[in-house]
Amino acid sequence: MNTSMITASVTMGQLQQKLDTISNNITNSNTTGFKRREATFSDLLFQQVHTQSDLSKEVGRLTPAGLRVGSGARIAQTALRLEQGAIMSTDRELDFAISVRDHFFQVGTIENGQQENRLTRDGAFYFSEDPDNNQLLTIVNSNGDFLLDAEGNRLNVPVNFSKLNLSNTGQLTATLNDGNTVNVGQLSLIRVLKPQLLESVGGNQFRIPDVAALGYQEGDVFEAVAAGESYVTQGALEGSNVDLSREMSELIATQRHYQFNTRAISMADEMSGLVNGLRR
Rank of each mutant, 00 (worst) to 15 (best):
N156T: 15
P158A: 01
S89R: 10
A124N: 14
K163A: 12
L62C: 00
T27L: 05
I26C: 02
A264M: 11
S142I: 09
Y126T: 03
I265M: 12
V221N: 10
Q171V: 14
A226E: 11
V182K: 00
F260N: 06
F46T: 00
L187C: 03
L197N: 07
K57W: 00
E218N: 07
A79I: 05
F146C: 02
N156Y: 08
F206S: 10
T169A: 12
D54T: 02
T109F: 02
L147E: 12
L19V: 02
M12H: 03
D91H: 15
V10R: 11
N153S: 14
F46L: 00
N180Q: 13
G277D: 13
I252T: 15
I110Y: 14
L237N: 10
P195V: 05
Q77Y: 13
A264C: 03
V59R: 01
S272W: 12
R121P: 09
L166K: 01
R256I: 04
Q196R: 15
E250K: 07
N133L: 05
I98W: 06
G113K: 08
M1L: 04
Q106P: 08
Q48E: 07
L55Q: 06
T63D: 01
V159H: 04
T7A: 13
I265V: 15
R61K: 07
I110T: 15
G170C: 09
S71R: 06
L55M: 04
L45D: 06
D95V: 07
R207A: 12
T262M: 12
V242L: 14
T27W: 01
L189D: 10
L193Q: 08
N261R: 06
G70S: 08
A8E: 11
Q255I: 04
V10I: 08
S53D: 09
